[in-house]
């Protein structure tokens, strides 16, 4: 009575055993995985305190929103990724720490993001373009992508001749300018010198026009214009600089100048997808454990061995019809 070696169930069982044996000798397969290096610079100027986002039914400030979004982005990054963090105010970014492995060091990284506060600001000015261009330089030096979170509100306003000039190479640094804030104008919270909130910035507390450089075109039409004594007109300009919304148009021109992408931070679009599209993928060495695949195949063979029974029996029966079939339990 030889065993039937052509029985598919035997073949499947033997295959399952062979695959299980193979799991013990399976080599660790070396492969590359995508990872990202990024420098996140967060604008911490006054206008980032505007509460025009909503989370859990409550208004939250732009800064809080940015912190949540940045944290969520880092959580979702594929694992060999490195993140550096900095803050921006005045006219320059300030690097808090150089790139660190975001997976191994997530807890200090998360703590550092959580601790970002407008009170860190060493000056109140918000010269976005100057800060952005220096951040691009910093990212190039660190060999990372750049994520620049800002609402685009220049304070004080840019002179009529425009802001600073980008001297880097367009598109050399990849990344995104992340526009934060709503499209509607909202009041900017004001704080006293002990850091307590005391109402909102009033219309007469901020300059609405830069009076540096040459006057803008059409200044001659202004009331009280005098080419020598009052080239900007005699009355102070009144605008909406005491209110804030995301200056999308301006940020888009900056994104064109620098070659960075532009993304508006809201709940509808995924920052991760936008960053993946704009950022640079680095191939990192990783290893792949192939045992789960072998085990899965083996399980499939076992399952097949138990379930092809009726099928092969039927084939066998057709070959050799018998009247009394008794299934042996």
């Amino acid at each position: 009575m030889r065993p039937d070696l052509r029985d598919p169930r035997f073949i499947l069982l033997a295959l399952a055993v062979a695959l299980l044996v193979a799991t013990f000798g399976a080599p660790v397969v070396q492969m590359t995985r995508p990872g990202y290096d990024l420098l996140a610079i967060v604008d911490i100027t006054g206008s980032m305190n505007v509460r025009d986002y909503v989370a859990g039914g409550k208004p939250v400030s732009r800064l809080e929103k940015v912190k949540t979004a940045l944290r969520d982005l880092i959580v979702a990054l594929p694992c060999p990724s490195r993140v550096a963090l900095g803050v921006f105010t005045e006219r320059r970014p300030f690097l808090l720490f150089e790139p660190i492995d975001a997976c191994a060091n997530f807890s200090p990284l998360g703590g550092a993001i959580q601790a970002i506060d407008w009170r860190m600001a060493w000056e109140g000015d918000s010269r976005i373009s100057a800060g952005l261009f220096r951040a691009v330089d910093m990212a190039r030096e660190l060999k990372t992508d750049l994520l620049f979170f800002t609402d685009g509100q220049e304070a004080p306003p840019l002179p009529a001749s425009g802001g600073s000039v980008f001297e880097g190479r367009v598109g050399e640094t990849h990344g995104l300018i992340v526009g934060t804030g709503g499209y509607e104008l909202s009041p900017i919270p004001k704080f006293d010198d002990r850091g307590r909130e005391v109402g909102f910035v009033a219309i007469d507390e901020v300059p609405h026009e830069s009076r540096f450089g040459l006057p803008p075109k059409g200044a001659e039409q202004r009331e009280g214009f005098n080419a020598r004594n009052a080239p900007f007109g005699a009355t102070a300009a009144v605008g909406v600089e005491h209110l804030s919304s995301v200056k999308e148009e301006y940020l888009r021109t900056l994104s064109e100048k620098t070659g960075l992408g532009y993304f508006h931070l809201d709940d509808n679009a995924s920052l991760l997808d936008a960053y993946r599209a704009a950022g640079t993928e680095h191939d990192r060495d990783g290893s792949l454990d192939i045992r789960p695949f072998l085990g899965g195949l083996s399980a499939a063979c076992l399952f097949a061995a138990f379930s092809v029974g009726p099928l092969s029996d039927r084939i066998a029966r057709r070959r050799r019809p018998t009247r009394f079939a008794w299934k042996r339990q």
Binding site: A84, V87, F94, L95, L96, F97, E98, P99, I100, D101, A104, N105, S107, P108, L109, G111, A112, A115, D117, R119, M120, A121, W122, E123
Partner: peptide, 26 residues
């Protein structure tokens, strides 16, 4: 400097601490 900044919270992650120290000569 003019204002204080928390760079990394208390942790035993040596890499994070060293990355923070690396940034101090900027």
């Amino acid at each position: 400097s003019t204002s204080p900044m928390l760079v990394t919270p208390l942790s035993d992650h040596v890499d994070a601490t060293k990355a923070a120290i690396d940034a101090i000569d900027r």
